[in-house]
Amino acid sequence: MEFLRFGVVVFPGSNCDHDCFYVLNNVLKQDVKYIWHKEIEVRDVDCIVLPGGFSYGDYLRTGAIARFSPIMQGVIDFANKGGLVIGICNGFQILLEAGLLPGAMLRNKNVHFICKHVHIKLLNKNTPFTNLYKKDEVLKIPIAHNEGNYYIDEKGLKTLKENNQIVFQYCANPNGAADNIAGIINKEGNVLGMMPHPERSSEKELGSQDGLFIFKSIVEWVK
């Protein structure tokens, strides 16, 4: 296979869709297409990206309305068949609402939107999304969110830990997230949700390339 086929889902209010497209297409030189949220089936892609943004204005509850977009049944089917799905920021929130990942998002502890570079520590490098990193590597990747305060009950947290599902932890907790969680994966290991934006740290000019290896890892894995 020469190129990987990525599908970036566009919900009304998505606003990192172009950024993800740009990095996958212009930086990583892979095959990318947009998938409109009104489509009902996912076809001809190797990996689905649920991008960041404010799907449906974050109205009612972040990710809650997008979760009922027609495409989400397609995404769920795709994931259940083992397809790779990565949800970034709002995409992570949608995966939580859709039940593809456990837990929920609360407002940031300081009740403000936070946009800044943060450092996150890699806890699990044996995933399709992180296989190119070094063990325990610390990455510099920006966050930009209002609701990144990850919540899960104690039992759920225990399960996450037992199954090695916590993929990234903040080195300094910016938002109040339980157990410093910045990103988790499902039990099966094919659906990743993360609050930091790897597409924003994929080029030298933007101050960090640490995020690029997530996308590169995906390409490596599928190949």
């Binding site: 609360l106 407002r107 940031n108 502890k109 300081n110 009740v111 305060n149 919540y151 109040g176």
Partner: peptide
């Protein structure tokens, strides 16, 4: 409402 067991930043 948020459940009583959940912290409510707002």
């Amino acid at each position: 409402n948020l459940k009583n067991t959940v912290v409510d930043p707002q």
